[in-house]
Amino acid sequence: MESRMKKGGVKYTLAKVWNYKWIYLMLLPVIVYFAVFRYAPMYGVTIAFKDYNIFKGVFESPWVGLDVFQKIFANKNFWSAIKNTFALNFITLGVSFPLTIIVSLMLNELGNAKFKKITQSIFYLPHFVSWVVVAGIASNLFALQDGAVNMLLQRIGLEKIPFLSSNGWWIFTYVVCHVWKEIGWGTIIYLAALTGVDESLYEAAYLDGATKFQRLIYITLPSIKSVIVTMLLLSLSKMMSIGLDAPLLLGNSKVMGVSEVISTYTYRIGIQKALYSESTAIGLFQSVVNIIILVAADRFAKLIGEEGIL
């Protein structure tokens, strides 16, 4: 009897698949893409456990166990890069995350639809500007000798500020550039969430005498709280990752103490020094730490009553 039910279940499943065969056919290119370009290359992670030789390849390179990890963990530059990565990510998150919400709320309050669209477009535009261009703009603005900002400071009788050659000021410059570039793009999710807020709640609050600020605090923010928590969790899951282009292009030898992050460190040992096993091990370590942070943040969110994402 059980075997008949199992056969019947298999036949039923096959029949359902056949009924939706065209949908599955449309999914096939996506499945092939992920299989070939996402899952198959994951075997390359084994380089982290091998004495990789480019002439022998991944399969013939000898296994060395955890020797590669012991080597990178013993390097002080590795831990310095991790510290800088966390510091820059936390500072950037602490500034950009609340500002993104504030900008979203401000855009949502604009009454003129045409002006609102133009403003949104202006805010979105920097996201599509390459970091190469942003670094060039930053150099022209904040250079010590002929930067526009320092020339203006000198004109009004103030001392020049070493924005790009002092550790503290370099972090300030990095955060300013990052916020300017990405804050508009980050508002998209929040603006989409704000469109789903029930207008009748605002009308009822208005009739009860609530001010615009009170409606913002007691209706708008609670209505998008789940979206805010989700975005925060996703941001926390990237604490161990940082783009290569921004710190590499904005950094220089004078601020290596703060600009050398995990991505630039991996670039230098993997591309410049051809230490492929070490760079792969660092990448694997990054992924594991990001997963741990994501799981921990998700568990914390659930403890305080939120749904989380896992």
Rank of each mutant, 00 (worst) to 15 (best):
E2L: 11
S3F: 13
K6Y: 09
K7R: 14
G8C: 00
K16T: 11
W18P: 00
I23Q: 11
L27M: 15
Y33C: 06
F34P: 00
F37G: 03
R38A: 07
R38M: 03
Y39L: 15
A48H: 08
Y52C: 08
Y52N: 07
N53I: 01
N53C: 04
N53D: 15
I54C: 00
E60M: 09
G65Y: 08
F69S: 08
Q70S: 15
N75L: 07
I82Y: 09
K83C: 01
N84K: 08
T85V: 03
N89Y: 11
L93C: 09
P98D: 05
L99V: 07
I102A: 13
I102Q: 03
V103A: 10
S104M: 04
M106P: 01
M106I: 11
L107M: 15
E109Q: 14
E109R: 11
E109F: 03
N112K: 15
A113P: 12
K114F: 12
K114L: 09
K116P: 05
I118T: 15
T119L: 11
H127G: 02
S130A: 14
V133R: 07
V134T: 05
I137F: 10
A138V: 15
A138G: 02
S139E: 05
F142Q: 03
L144V: 10
D146V: 09
V149S: 04
N150M: 06
L152Y: 14
L153Y: 07
Q154S: 14
G157Y: 10
G157E: 11
L158Q: 13
K160D: 06
P162Y: 10
F163W: 15
S166W: 03
W169R: 07
W170M: 09
I171E: 03
F172S: 08
T173Y: 00
V176S: 09
V179N: 09
K181M: 04
E182A: 09
W185L: 06
I189N: 12
I189H: 06
L191G: 02
A192P: 06
A192T: 10
A192D: 10
A193H: 10
L194V: 05
T195L: 06
T195Y: 05
V197A: 11
E199D: 12
E199S: 13
S200I: 13
S200T: 15
L201P: 01
A205Q: 05
Y206I: 02
D208S: 10
G209L: 10
G209M: 13
A210H: 09
Y218S: 10
S223R: 02
I224F: 04
S226D: 12
I228M: 14
V229N: 08
L233V: 10
L236W: 09
M240P: 02
L244A: 00
D245P: 01
A246R: 00
P247L: 03
L248D: 00
L250D: 09
K254I: 00
M256L: 14
V258C: 04
S259D: 08
E260R: 04
T264P: 02
T264Y: 06
Y267A: 01
G270L: 06
K273L: 13
K273V: 03
K273G: 00
S279I: 05
G283I: 06
G283Y: 05
F285S: 08
V289Y: 01
I291R: 00
A296D: 00
A297R: 03
E307C: 01
E307M: 04
